[in-house]
Simulated assay, not measured.
Amino acid sequence: MDRGIRNGTMTAVPVGVGQRGRQAVAERRPGGSTAGTQGTGAQRIAELEREVRELKRTNETLKQYLSKALDLDTASPGRRDVRVPDTAVDGAPDTAGPPPRSASGAGVEFRVLGPVEAAVGGRWVDLGAPKQRAALVLLVSQVGQPVSVDTLVDALWDGRPPQSAITSLHAYIANLRRALEPHRAPRTPATVLCTRGRGYLLNSQAVEVDAHRFWESATAGWQALDRGDPQRALYAFETGLALWRGEAYAEMAAAPHVAPEAVRLEELRLSVIEGRCATLIAVGSHEMAVPELVAFTQAHPLREYGCELLSLALYRAGRQADALSVLRAHQKRMVEDLGISPSPALQHLELEILRQAPELERS
Rank of each mutant, 00 (worst) to 15 (best):
I281D: 04
A242H: 12
G228C: 13
A218M: 07
L327D: 04
A88S: 14
T188I: 00
I353K: 06
L312P: 00
M10T: 12
D81R: 12
A35Q: 09
L268R: 08
P344Q: 04
A220G: 07
A255M: 13
M1I: 14
H170R: 15
A12H: 11
D94C: 11
A92W: 04
W215T: 02
M252L: 14
Q231R: 14
R232W: 03
P182D: 11
V17I: 13
A289R: 04
E350N: 10
I281V: 12
R355Y: 01
D158I: 01
A242T: 02
L349G: 06
G339Y: 03
D71Q: 14
T239S: 15
P93Q: 08
Q145L: 15
G159K: 06
T34H: 11
E292C: 06
D229I: 07
A96W: 10
Q298A: 12
T87K: 13
G122F: 03
R196H: 12
E208T: 01
G4D: 15
G275I: 01
A211D: 08
G107V: 05
L176S: 10
E27S: 15
R362F: 07
V108D: 06
A262F: 01
V192S: 02
M288C: 03
L346Q: 07
W222V: 08
T11C: 10
H286T: 03
T239K: 15
M252R: 15
Q298F: 04
P161T: 01
L302N: 12
T58I: 05
D126W: 06
Q163V: 06
P146T: 09
S285L: 05
F110T: 04
A220S: 09
L351R: 15
A42Q: 14
V207G: 01
Q205W: 02
P93R: 11
S168K: 10
S204E: 08
G144I: 07
P93D: 05
Q43N: 13
T61W: 00
C307E: 12
Q132N: 00
G16W: 05
Q347V: 09
W124F: 07
S141H: 12
C307I: 14
A259F: 01
L351S: 14
S168V: 13
F110M: 10
G122T: 04
A179T: 14
W222F: 14
S217N: 09
T151C: 09
A317L: 10
L268W: 04
L136V: 04
M252V: 15
I340E: 07
G306V: 00
L324K: 10
E287R: 11
P115D: 09
R184W: 00
D81K: 06
W222A: 06
R232C: 08
N7V: 12
I5Q: 12
E274R: 03
E216V: 03
L202C: 03
P30V: 07
I173H: 08
A321E: 14
A118L: 01
T167M: 13
H183G: 08
R80I: 11
A317N: 14
V120E: 02
E49Y: 02
R198G: 09
Q205N: 08
L309R: 09
L136F: 00
P115K: 06
G31W: 02
V258W: 02
V52T: 02
Y200T: 00
C307H: 14
E181F: 13
F214V: 03
V326H: 10
G122Y: 07
A26M: 14
R50T: 02
